[in-house]
Nucleic acid binder design. Structure first.
Length: 633
RNA sequence: GGUCCCAUAGCUCAAUGGAUAGAGCAACUACCUUCUAAGUAGUAGGUUACAGGUUCGAGCCCUGUUGGGAUCACCA
């Protein structure tokens, strides 16, 4: 069944879409046409905020038109400025500097803009697009708890989904839980052999951690077994038979581990047996699997709750790992796939710069990419999304390139809307996190730690006593998590990031708390406004807009377009950097100008209204990142 | 080896092909009897890895080189 979302007429008139910037671009196009008789490529008309060191608010780059005009750049700017000024009443003047036409906006425009913003609780949100987007993120294995890498994934996925919503799309959040396979069998076997009936209830250990502990224990036992085996004659025989030239014994056994696990290991054999029993539906094995996975899910729920994220639908690999075979049939019929003599089915993607890829084993079972084909198809049937975003680390770039190319060739209706939000791995200063070396940063521990740091800093400033215990803890959680989340989201997804747990959790400077603090300042003002019943109507009389105020107004003005750009590029870091920049401008405004204590009533009212607008946009933008704002701190 | 990604201040990161490449941290300095100093301002720190090219204009686009990472299973 295909659900097509009825394209509702755009109800919400995007008040500021036809902003002054768009008006200017339009005017530039018309002006060039009348003056020089050529219609310029609209996309080449650049209008950008004028840098602070020049007078004016928005700048038009006139270089692209000098050839048409056959005049010097300054002369072109001059005559275009004159013409544009006549077209747009909200402009009050212009100046020309080295080929840049700097236009000045009239205070009335900003008055109107600010009023409109404060009357629009949805300021910045786009009109409904009719698109339905699925965002898949997190997608953990159930054999161990979530770690720092998952946190980046989850934060990217969550904020991306929020941004897509704000841009006007309908969003469905999902994860696929990798609840089956060798890894979970290792934890199960380990618990069965060494668990002594331990449960989350009787041990007080969080379920996902408990299961993870047994996974780690299993890896230890395997290591011991392997080391012992290496002393045996069988090991020596393998070494002398298979070693590469000049290969040291140690290096050989490092590479040989997987093969050993599958062919010689006693524990390995038991794990494989368990997997076979599970696949055969052995009741006892399935019961144990259910039980332990449920422990994990309870643990995950807690972590997701602490992070403030949620999902609309969970998919389980145990339900999907056999999917995709009907799509293989379809692909064979469409001659997208071909069958080899041994019965395996392949796809040749060489002409797309990819490779040949197996989609069905010779024994008729699915591989990873086949499952994903089937899952994508099923999801389309479930929700009718015309776009799907997969938040997955960049190790899997090749896999998604293959998957998307196949779905395109199968002519799946959503194929053009597939996007892999690929992000770089999180590394520690010491390098990659490794389970075996115990360098994995646990998600729960990290959240606790960053809240402790916030607590410590609050104590140092001696400002903890003025709050009740509950209020204080609520604030510390928002501040600590705000620091952590902002630190991670501000980096462009594509880049790998280095995470230094000690040094990276600053609360000063370019951080989450810095932004929260600007909101707290604003909140303090607004509460006082409410308390004292301040009349804000004189704001409309204010005309002498200061540089610091104009900077804020221009920043607020960008917000709607920013959401569209961030959504189109699937890039939450744009929002994060915007938040910082806006907060920075506000702190400067606060420092340089008196707000509540302004001399004139109109200045005071205007600055308070401006503060309200900044607070509301900051709150909105940070919520797109999944960061909560405290009222006080 | 093939393909893809990355390289900007000591460190962590910014910069729709536009004006003198910006922030924060770390260092030094100044500003709280005035709206919360988790703030503000200043000093210092750069051949944007290197070499060419396109352009009126390149950190950004193209080519090559170097360095780092990922990936190239009938694993997931």
């Amino acid at each position: 069944m295909v659900i097509s979302v009825a394209l509702r007429p755009q109800i919400k008139q995007p008040i500021f879409m036809s902003t002054i910037v768009e008006q200017i671009r339009q005017a530039v196009a018309e002006t060039v046409a009348t003056l020089y008789g050529e219609t310029p490529d609209f996309s080449k008309i650049q209008v950008s905020p004028t840098p602070a060191e020049f007078s004016g608010d928005y700048s038009v780059v006139v270089f692209p038109f000098v050839k048409m005009a056959k005049k010097a750049p300054d002369a072109v700017a001059e005559e275009m400025g004159k013409a544009i000024l006549e077209k747009i009443p909200q402009l009050s003047g212009y100046s020309v500097v080295k080929g840049f036409l700097n236009l000045e906006t009239a205070p009335a425009y900003w008055q109107q803009f600010l009023q409109g913003l404060n009357n629009d609780p949805d300021f910045g949100r786009g009109a409904r697009t009719g698109h339905k987007v699925m965002v898949e993120y997190s997608s953990p294995n159930t054999n161990k708890p979530l770690h720092l890498g998952h946190i980046r994934n989850i934060l990217l996925g969550w904020s991306c989904s929020r941004i897509l919503e704000a841009a006007g799309h309908e969003v469905v959040r999902v994860q696929i839980i990798n609840d089956r396979g060798v890894a979970i069998c290792k934890s199960m076997l380990s618990w069965q052999k060494f668990g002594e009936g331990k449960t989350p209830e009787n041990s007080g250990v969080k379920g996902d951690h408990l299961v993870g502990d047994f996974y780690v224990l299993f890896e230890q036992k395997i290591k011991e077994e392997y080391e012992q085996w290496q002393q045996t004659d069988a090991a020596t025989a393998q070494y002398s038979q298979r070693k590469k030239q000049e290969q040291e014994r140690k290096d050989f056994f490092k590479d040989y581990k997987n093969k050993w696990f599958n062919e010689f290991s006693v524990l390995g054999a038991e794990v494989r047996e368990m997997l076979l029993k599970w696949e055969a539906g052995d009741p006892e094995t399935v019961a144990l699997w259910r039980r332990m996975n449920n422990w994990v899910y309870q643990g995950f729920d807690k972590t997701y709750g602490d992070l403030g994220v949620s999902f609309d639908k969970l998919y389980y690999e145990s339900d999907t790992y056999l999917l995709g075979k009907d799509m293989v049939e379809m692909g064979l019929n469409k001659n997208v796939f071909y069958r080899k003599d041994d019965g395996s089915v392949w796809v040749d993607l060489a002409d797309a710069g990819l490779d040949q890829k197996v989609v069905l084993r010779s024994d008729g079972t699915s591989v990873y990419v086949t499952q994903d084909m089937g899952t994508a198809h099923m999801r389309y049937q479930d929700f009718g999304c015309d776009r799907m975003v997969y938040v997955v680390a960049d190790e899997q770039n090749y896999h998604f390139a293959v998957l998307f190319e196949i779905l395109k060739r199968l002519e799946e209706p959503y194929a053009a809307g597939l996007y892999h939000l690929s992000y770089g791995l999180v590394e520690l200063p010491t390098g990659r996190m490794k389970t075996r070396e115990g360098t994995v940063v646990d998600a729960d521990d990290l959240m606790q730690e960053v809240i402790s740091i916030a607590r410590e800093q609050a104590r140092e400033r001696g400002e903890v006593d003025q709050f009740s215990v509950e209020e204080r803890e609520g604030i510390l959680k928002k501040v600590g998590l705000g620091a952590l989340k902002f630190f991670i989201i501000k980096v462009h997804p594509k880049k790998k990031m280095i995470f230094n747990p000690e040094e990276s959790m600053d609360m000063q400077g370019q951080t989450g708390p810095y932004i929260q603090y600007s909101f707290v300042r604003i909140n303090g003002l607004l509460q006082r406004v409410a308390r004292e019943g301040v009349d804000l109507t004189p704001a409309a009389q204010y005309t002498d807009i200061q540089a610091q105020e104009k900077e804020l107004l221009k920043a607020l003005h960008e917000y709607p377009q920013l959401i569209q750009t961030a959504a189109a590029e699937y890039d939450p870091s744009l929002i994060a950097n915007y938040c910082y920049s806006l907060a920075k401008s506000y702190h400067k405004f606060w420092h340089d100008l008196s707000i509540f204590n302004a001399d004139a009533a109109d200045a005071r009212a205007f600055r308070l209204e401006l503060s309200r607008a900044v607070g509301s946009v900051l709150n909105s933008a940070m919520s797109l990142l999944g960061i909560d704002m405290p009222e006080r701190m």
